Computed example of a mutant assay.
Amino acid sequence: MRLLLLLVVLAIIGLTLVRWLGHGPPAPKVSGASEHSAEPPKVPNRPQDMKAFEADINRFIKDSAAQRAKQESAP
């Protein structure tokens, strides 16, 4: 009798775990503004292009920070 009760309890626990773990992770929430954000500049292959890349990456960082600040202050 104890063995039968143990099997029933293990079956219930097993079914509960399968049901609980069987679901995939929830889809990540993506805000509408981040979907359309600008892409970062491409990394240059030649050393001569580093100055232009530095300027582009600095502009990208400042624009991203301004956009994030605008999003946080909007709601």
Rank of each mutant, 00 (worst) to 15 (best):
A27T: 11
N45F: 15
D56P: 03
M1G: 09
A52W: 04
P75G: 15
S73G: 01
F53S: 03
L4S: 10
V30Y: 12
I61V: 13
A27Q: 12
L10C: 05
Q67S: 09
P47A: 15
R46T: 12
V8W: 01
D56G: 02
D63F: 03
R2S: 09
S73W: 04
F60T: 01
H23C: 01
L21T: 01
G14M: 05
R46L: 13
G32S: 15
V9T: 01
V43A: 07
R59Y: 06
L21E: 05
V43S: 05
D56C: 02
P25N: 12
A65C: 06
R2G: 13
G24W: 02
Q67H: 10
E72R: 13
K70D: 09
W20G: 04
P44R: 02
M1Y: 07
L17Y: 10
P41K: 02
A65P: 00
A65R: 11
R46V: 11
W20I: 06
D49I: 03
R2P: 00
A66K: 12
I61F: 05
A11I: 08
R68W: 09
Q48G: 11
R19S: 08
L7P: 00
Q71L: 11
K70L: 12
G24F: 04
N45Q: 15
M1H: 08
P28V: 03
L4H: 06
N58C: 08
V43T: 12
R19Y: 07
E54G: 13
L15H: 04
M50F: 13
G22T: 02
E39Q: 15
R19M: 01
L3A: 07
S31E: 14
P40D: 05
L17M: 09
P25S: 14
E39V: 15
E72Q: 14
P41E: 02
A69L: 10
P28C: 07
P47G: 12
I12W: 06
A74W: 05
S73H: 06
V9K: 02
F53I: 05
G24K: 11
G14Y: 00
A11C: 09
L15N: 10
D49G: 00
A66S: 14
R68H: 08
K29R: 13
E54N: 13
V8N: 00
F60P: 02
S37E: 14
K51A: 15
P26Q: 09
P40V: 00
T16P: 02
D49A: 14
P40T: 01
S73Y: 04
F60A: 03
